[in-house]
Design a protein around this nucleic acid. Structure first.
Lengths: 141, 141
DNA sequence: TGTTTGCTACGAAGCCATTCGTAAAGGCTG
DNA sequence: CAGCCTTTACGAATGGCTTCGTAGCAAACA
C-alpha cells in the first residue's frame, strides 16, 4: 500500500504526532509519559494507538530492538495544512479570512506574535485572481 | 434538554449549521437541497441529523406547522471560536501564530483578504504583558 | 373521495475511534 | 536460576457518527 492517500489523523493521533514532531523519534513509554502530562491515559492505549498509526502509515517504526522507536511519517506543516483545509471547508465556508479573524480575534495574542504575523503578511504574494465566486444561488432543486 | 453544556458539533452537523447560519431558518427540505449541492445525501439522513441536533440542543425548531423549521441555537462566531480552540490544542500546540501561518502560508489568499487581515491586526489590542512566561522548554521527560 | 405526494418518527445497521484486559516473551537482578 | 519488570500483540467492549429503510400520518389534488 504505497498509497499517496494520506490518512487523516484523528484527534488522538494528532496528540501523538505532536509529541513526535516536537521530540523526535520516541518510544511508546516516552510518548505515553508525555500524553500523561496532559490527561489520563493507559500505557496499552498509547501502544495500541501507535500500532494503529503504524498500520495506517502515519508513523514508521524501528523494531530492530525490543523497544520499538516510532517516528512521524507525516511532516508537520503538510499535516497541519491539510487539517486547516478541512476545517476551512467544514466550518468556515472556505474563508481563510474568517478563520484568521477567529483565531486572532477572540484570543489574547502578544504583540510579538502580531508583529510576526505582519511580517508574514508582507511576505505573501497576494493571489490577484479572485476565484470566480461560484454563486449557486440561481440554481434550483 | 436545557443543557448549559454546549455539545461540540460534528463535521456533518457543522455543514448543516453553515446552511442555517447563511440562510436563516430552514426546512429539512431546504437544508437537504443545499447539502445535495455539495455531496450525495439522502433526505432522511438530513432529517435524522436535524432531529439529533435538536435533541442535543444544537438547533431549535418550530413545529407548529407540519413542515418544521429549524434554526441554529449556536452563534456562528462562538462556535467557530470553540472549534479553533480545540484545533489549537489538538494540532498546533496552542500556538495561534502557527495556525495563522498555516492558514495564510499555504494558501492562495487574495490581496483583499490580506488587507482585511492587516486591518484586523491594527485593531487588536496586543496583550502587552506577556504573563510570567511558563517556559516549559527546560522540562524533560 | 380516493390517490398520490411529502413530511416526521423511529429503529437498526455499519463503521470507526478509543479504551482496556490479558497473554506471551525478553531481559535484568538478586 | 527464579522472579519481576517491561514490552509487544491481540481481541473485545464501548460509544458515537452516519446512513438508510420503513411506517404512519397529513395535506394536496384530480
Amino acid at each position: 500500500m504505497t498509497k499517496k492517500n494520506i490518512p487523516r489523523p484523528t484527534e488522538s493521533e494528532l496528540e501523538i504526532l505532536q509529541v513526535l514532531w516536537q521530540h523526535g523519534p520516541s518510544t511508546v513509554r516516552f510518548v505515553n509519559d508525555e500524553l500523561s502530562k496532559r490527561r489520563d491515559v493507559g500505557y496499552t492505549t498509547t501502544l495500541k494507538l501507535l500500532q494503529l498509526m503504524h498500520e495506517k502509515g502515519i508513523v514508521t517504526r524501528d523494531d530492530s530492538s525490543r523497544t520499538h522507536v516510532y517516528r512521524p511519517a507525516l511532516r508537520e506543516q503538510e499535516t497541519q495544512g491539510q487539517i486547516i483545509d478541512r476545517l476551512l471547508e467544514a466550518a468556515f465556508g472556505g474563508s481563510a479570512l474568517k478563520l484568521v479573524q477567529q483565531a486572532l480575534g477572540n484570543r489574547r495574542t502578544t504583540r510579538e506574535e502580531l508583529d510576526q504575523i505582519r511580517d508574514l503578511l508582507d511576505n505573501i504574494d497576494p493571489q490577484t485572481p479572485p476565484p470566480p465566486t461560484t454563486d449557486a444561488s440561481d440554481e434550483l432543486a
